[in-house]
């Protein structure tokens, strides 16, 4: 198997077999406590390799529930979630807040590794929150809050970062720039992006897991995205094709 130099870091060689970074959900069934309705019935899906992947679906189909299961924050389901070459899973969502006793710059600095200052500066500039680094979290706009929260997660040690609506309330241009920055700065990491913006997902994501209603079988469908590395360099026809596939799958 011929590998590019950059890919070697996310493959490992054990007993002559190449193990690829992968997260696999197998035969997952789950219903919320004290309810009769199943959220998942024999759900199976997988995401393979590093890069920017997506979990897409209508509201209420269980995207957050599945994300929390993958992150190990939710138990009590049947089936298996297996990961390979993924030791650290983090789950960031858009309802999170910083403690209010210090500015967001100080709070970020207090929770990152000593070697992370260059990365912090790079992310702060790319995410466009430099002017508010001394402000308290409560003084930020919703979009700034989400960007600040995402930055502090990116400064942590992780193999898979689940971003649950982490770029909500951020304008489209900035969102695109942020996603491309993530793909450039963290090529060996795996991202699972949850968003309702179909065009954004079709444009920037590599593998798209489309979640369907529990009455449909299979409950997930896998679509290949355009996985663009630049914002405007795309063929409209291909993008439309991907979006159509997502619509048909959901």
């Amino acid at each position: 198997m011929k590998l590019k130099k950059r890919q070697i870091c996310w493959f490992s060689n054990i007993d002559g077999y190449l193990i690829v970074m992968q997260i696999e959900c197998h035969d997952i069934s789950y219903q919320y406590p004290q309810t009769d309705a199943h959220v998942f019935e024999h759900l199976s899906c997988q995401v393979t390799g590093p890069g920017f992947h997506a979990l897409f679906g209508q509201s209420g189909l269980g995207k957050t529930t599945l994300a929390r299961m993958i992150a190990g924050e939710l138990t009590g389901y049947s089936g298996q979630i297996q990961s390979r070459q993924i030791a650290e899973v983090l789950y960031a969502h858009n309802m999170e807040r910083f403690p209010g006793w210090a500015g967001i710059g100080d709070m970020m600095a207090s929770t990152m590794q000593a070697s992370g200052h260059d990365m912090l500066n790079e992310l702060v500039n790319a995410f466009g929150i430099q002017p508010v680094m001394n402000a308290r979290f409560s003084q930020l706009s919703l979009g700034q809050k989400n960007r600040a929260n995402l930055i502090r997660y990116l400064l942590q040690k992780f193999d898979l970062l689940i971003m649950d609506e982490s770029l909500a309330n951020v304008d489209e241009t900035t969102r695109g720039r942020i996603i491309i920055t993530l793909k450039t700065l963290f090529p060996e990491k795996c991202f699972l992006y949850i968003s309702h913006n179909m065009m954004e997902i079709a444009k920037f994501c590599n593998q798209i897991v489309v979640l369907r209603s529990p009455c449909k079988h299979p409950q997930t469908s896998m679509i290949s995205g355009q996985n663009l590395m630049t914002e405007n360099n795309f063929v409209m026809k291909d993008l439309e094709q991907t979006m159509l596939e997502i619509v048909h799958a959901s």
Binding site: E73, E96, T111
Partner: peptide, 12 residues
């Protein structure tokens, strides 16, 4: 939860 989640997730 909205504040503690980060610190719990990152084991801080």
């Amino acid at each position: 939860d909205s504040i503690e989640h980060f610190y719990v997730s990152t084991k801080r």
